[in-house]
Structures are given as structure tokens and as C-alpha cells.
């Protein structure tokens, strides 16, 4: 009976994994199809959709914009979030627990609600520049990922090391940089990676903030899927998946996925 139960669970696990990968594999398959329609099974193999990416200007622009926004917002969150996390961990500010919850709370709000709030606020404050608005909103989106991982790393960090560095002649900022930063690097890498992905993939917040000429990749992709779905979209999606896998592997090499997953 127990054996049957465990076999049953394993079967479900196998099916679940197959199920989760289905749409991803389909996208990969279609991107190599020789046909412009999404027939299954595909009639033949070709790389023409990858070749055609070279002409997809608006798509490439969207990739570039999303990369910039994700990288900048992650970097800003890393700096602001880490400084804040240090103050929280060291009890330098009152109500540390509440502050930590506040900084991580954008993750708990529905994305669309956040997006609407940003849209309204940008209007009320007269903030017209799409790029700046997007960047500010994405710092808010990425902040919770940084807060969670960095707080977890800091809780394992011995702050006497910072004192030791100061007594050996480094100023407080230099001590943080030379001792704290290298020691919580795994937290930075995993938090940074997830923050980057969260920003790069964000749809529900960005949809309210983009304009005709400034579109992030998810918006541009969805437009294309709705308007004129063709395997070019599949090709760019396949490259995105590839990029994600490469990023995960690089991070694994840097700090070890085990260490990342445990943080």
C-alpha cells in the first residue's frame, strides 16, 4: 500500500514536470519550424525565424530597454536594499521588523494594483518621462527580492568582522566593501538574479507605464502574440529561455545553486 502510494506520487511528479515543460518545449520546437503556421508536428527544420530576428527592430529595441531597466533597477535595489538591510540587522533603526516587512511588501500586492498606483502618482507628480517612471517602478518591484535574500545572508554574517576591518585601518564604508560584500556575495547573486528576472519579465506594472515608442519586452511580445503571432516570437522566446539557463549556470558557477537555493 505504502509502496503503491509512493509510486503513485512519483508518477504524478513525472507527469507534472512533463506538463510544466510542455509549453516551453513547444516554443522551442516551433522556433525551429520551417513553416509559418504552428502545425504540430512541424513539417521541417529551419533557422529562418532566427535569421529574421535581425530585422525585428521593435523587438530588439524592447530587449535592449528591458535589459537596461532590469539591470539598473536591480543595481539600485542592491545598493539601497543592502544599506537598509544592514541598518535593520544591526538594530540601528526602531521597528526593524516592521521596516523589513514594509520593504518586502510590494511583492505581496497584486501587480496591476501597483501599476495603477504608479500611473496615477506619475500623473499627479507630473512625471512624464517614461524611462524614469519605468525605472522607479522597477526598483520598487525588485526591492523585495533583494531584501529577502540580503536579510537572510546578513543574519548569518558576523559583524565583528566589520569592526575588525575598521580597527585594521579601513573606514566604515571601506570595511563594508572589503569584508561584508565578499561574504554575502551569494545572497547578492541569487537576490540579484531573481530581481533581474522579476523586472525583465514584468508585465502587469509596466503595461500602465509604457508608451508607443518605449515598450518593454513582455509588452512588445504580448502585442506581437495578439496581433501577428509568427515563429519570430518563438525564436526570441527561445533565446530568452536560453539566456535564463545561461544566467542560472553562471550563477551556479559563481556561488553554487545549492547555496543560492538555501538563501
Amino acid at each position: 500500500m505504502a509502496l503503491f502510494g509512493s509510486l503513485f506520487c512519483r508518477l504524478i511528479l513525472g507527469l507534472v514536470i512533463a506538463f510544466l515543460f510542455m509549453p516551453i518545449l513547444i516554443v522551442l520546437t516551433v522556433s525551429f519550424s520551417s513553416s509559418a503556421v504552428f502545425a504540430f508536428p512541424p513539417p521541417g527544420f529551419s533557422l529562418r525565424w532566427y535569421a529574421s530576428l535581425g530585422n525585428a527592430d521593435s523587438m530588439l529595441q524592447a530587449v535592449w530597454l528591458s535589459t537596461q531597466i532590469a539591470a539598473l533597477s536591480t543595481a539600485i535595489s542592491l545598493v539601497l536594499g543592502t544599506l537598509c538591510a544592514i541598518a535593520i540587522t544591526r538594530g540601528m533603526i526602531p521597528g526593524a521588523k516592521a521596516v523589513a516587512t514594509f520593504m518586502a511588501s510590494p511583492l505581496m500586492l497584486p501587480g496591476l494594483v501597483l501599476g495603477i498606483a504608479f500611473l496615477q502618482a506619475a500623473r499627479d507628480f507630473g512625471l512624464r518621462d517614461t524611462y524614469t517612471t519605468l525605472l522607479i517602478a522597477h526598483v520598487v518591484i525588485t526591492m523585495p527580492f533583494i531584501m529577502r535574500t540580503v536579510l537572510a545572508s546578513l543574519s548569518l554574517f558576523d559583524f565583528a568582522m566589520v569592526d575588525a576591518a575598521r580597527m585594521l585601518g579601513r573606514s566604515y564604508p571601506a570595511a563594508l566593501w572589503t569584508v561584508l560584500v565578499p561574504n554575502i556575495l551569494p545572497g547578492f547573486v541569487s537576490g540579484g538574479l531573481f530581481a533581474f528576472i522579476a523586472s525583465f519579465d514584468n508585465y502587469p506594472v509596466s503595461i500602465f507605464l509604457v508608451d508607443v515608442r518605449t515598450k518593454t519586452l513582455p509588452i512588445q511580445l504580448l502585442n506581437q502574440v495578439e496581433m501577428s503571432p509568427d515563429p519570430t516570437v518563438a525564436a526570441i522566446s527561445a533565446l530568452l529561455i536560453l539566456g535564463t539557463i545561461v544566467a542560472l549556470i553562471v550563477c551556479d558557477r559563481l556561488v553554487g545553486l545549492k547555496r543560492m537555493a538555501s538563501i
Binding site: D158, M161, A164, R166, M167, L168, A175, V179
Partner: peptide, 16 residues
């Protein structure tokens, strides 16, 4: 602190 030129051996050493 960093300009005092005072050495400290910490309770649990605080090695890097």
C-alpha cells in the same frame, strides 16, 4: 576607530 591605530583581538576572532 580606523585612525586610532589600536589593535583588537575579538572574542570569536572575527577572521575573514
Amino acid at each position: 576607530a580606523h585612525k586610532r591605530n589600536i589593535g583588537v583581538v575579538f572574542q570569536n576572532y572575527a577572521l575573514f
